[in-house]
Amino acid sequence: MDTYKLILNGKTLKGETTTEAVDAATAEKVFKHAANEHGVHGHWTYDPETKTFTVTE
């Protein structure tokens, strides 16, 4: 398992979190669910070198 990071750049919610996942696709599902639960919808990017997802509203 690897550690993946999410950076939230929402209009009303900003922050960072991490998750352990077997691959980037699994981490993305976890992060998108969490972002949706917090009402953050926007443009997603992924940097494979740093294993970091970013969502920007």
Rank of each mutant, 00 (worst) to 15 (best):
M1Q: 08
M1H: 08
M1I: 10
M1E: 07
D2F: 14
D2Y: 13
D2K: 12
D2H: 14
T3N: 05
T3K: 09
T3W: 09
T3H: 06
Y4L: 01
Y4V: 01
Y4G: 01
Y4I: 01
Y4R: 00
K5I: 11
K5R: 13
K5Y: 11
K5L: 07
K5N: 05
K5H: 10
L6E: 02
L6A: 03
L6I: 04
L6K: 00
L6D: 02
L6M: 07
L6V: 04
L6P: 02
I7L: 06
I7D: 03
I7Q: 04
I7E: 04
I7K: 06
L8S: 03
L8V: 10
L8I: 15
N9M: 11
N9I: 15
N9K: 09
N9P: 04
G10W: 06
G10T: 13
G10C: 10
G10K: 04
G10M: 14
K11R: 11
K11Q: 14
K11M: 14
K11E: 11
K11S: 13
K11L: 15
K11F: 15
K11P: 11
T12D: 13
T12L: 13
L13M: 14
L13Q: 10
L13C: 15
L13N: 09
K14Q: 13
K14A: 08
K14M: 10
G15Q: 14
G15K: 15
G15W: 15
G15P: 04
E16M: 06
E16G: 05
T17C: 15
T17A: 14
T17I: 15
T17E: 12
T17D: 07
T17P: 02
T17L: 15
T18S: 11
T18R: 07
T18H: 10
T19E: 04
T19F: 12
T19W: 07
T19I: 14
E20H: 10
E20M: 14
E20V: 14
E20D: 10
E20R: 11
E20Q: 14
E20Y: 12
A21T: 04
A21V: 04
A21G: 03
V22R: 12
V22I: 13
V22E: 12
V22W: 12
D23R: 02
D23M: 03
D23A: 03
D23S: 08
A24T: 06
A24E: 07
A25S: 09
T26G: 09
T26C: 07
T26W: 08
T26Y: 08
T26F: 07
T26M: 11
T26K: 05
A27T: 00
A27D: 00
A27R: 00
A27G: 01
E28S: 06
E28H: 11
E28D: 04
E28M: 13
E28G: 06
E28Y: 15
K29R: 12
K29W: 09
K29T: 10
K29A: 14
K29E: 13
K29Q: 13
K29D: 08
K29P: 03
K29H: 10
K29G: 09
V30T: 10
V30G: 04
V30M: 10
V30D: 05
V30S: 07
F31K: 00
F31Y: 02
F31P: 00
F31W: 01
F31S: 00
F31Q: 00
K32W: 11
K32N: 05
K32M: 11
K32E: 05
H33T: 12
H33C: 11
H33S: 11
H33M: 12
H33E: 14
A34I: 15
A34N: 08
A34T: 14
A34R: 10
A34C: 15
A34W: 15
A34P: 02
A34L: 15
A35M: 11
A35W: 06
N36A: 15
N36Q: 14
N36M: 14
N36H: 14
N36V: 11
E37Y: 10
E37K: 12
E37S: 13
E37I: 12
E37T: 12
E37W: 09
H38Y: 15
H38D: 05
H38I: 14
H38E: 09
H38A: 15
H38R: 13
G39V: 05
G39L: 05
G39Y: 05
G39F: 09
V40A: 04
H41L: 09
H41N: 11
H41E: 12
H41F: 14
G42P: 01
G42F: 04
G42I: 02
G42K: 02
G42S: 02
G42N: 02
G42L: 03
H43R: 11
H43P: 05
H43N: 12
H43C: 11
H43K: 12
H43I: 14
W44N: 00
W44V: 02
W44H: 01
W44R: 00
W44Y: 02
W44G: 00
T45P: 00
T45C: 07
T45G: 06
T45F: 10
T45I: 07
T45A: 10
T45W: 07
Y46V: 01
Y46R: 00
Y46T: 00
Y46Q: 00
Y46P: 00
Y46K: 00
D47T: 06
D47G: 02
P48S: 10
P48H: 09
P48G: 06
P48F: 07
P48E: 11
E49K: 11
E49C: 09
E49G: 11
E49L: 12
E49W: 10
E49A: 13
T50I: 06
T50K: 07
T50R: 07
T50S: 10
T50V: 05
K51T: 03
K51H: 08
K51Q: 06
T52P: 00
T52K: 03
F53H: 01
F53R: 00
F53N: 00
F53D: 00
F53S: 00
F53A: 00
F53M: 01
F53C: 01
T54L: 05
T54P: 00
T54H: 06
T54R: 05
T54K: 05
V55T: 02
V55Q: 01
V55Y: 03
V55S: 01
T56N: 09
T56H: 08
T56W: 08
T56C: 07
E57P: 05
E57R: 03
E57M: 05
E57T: 05
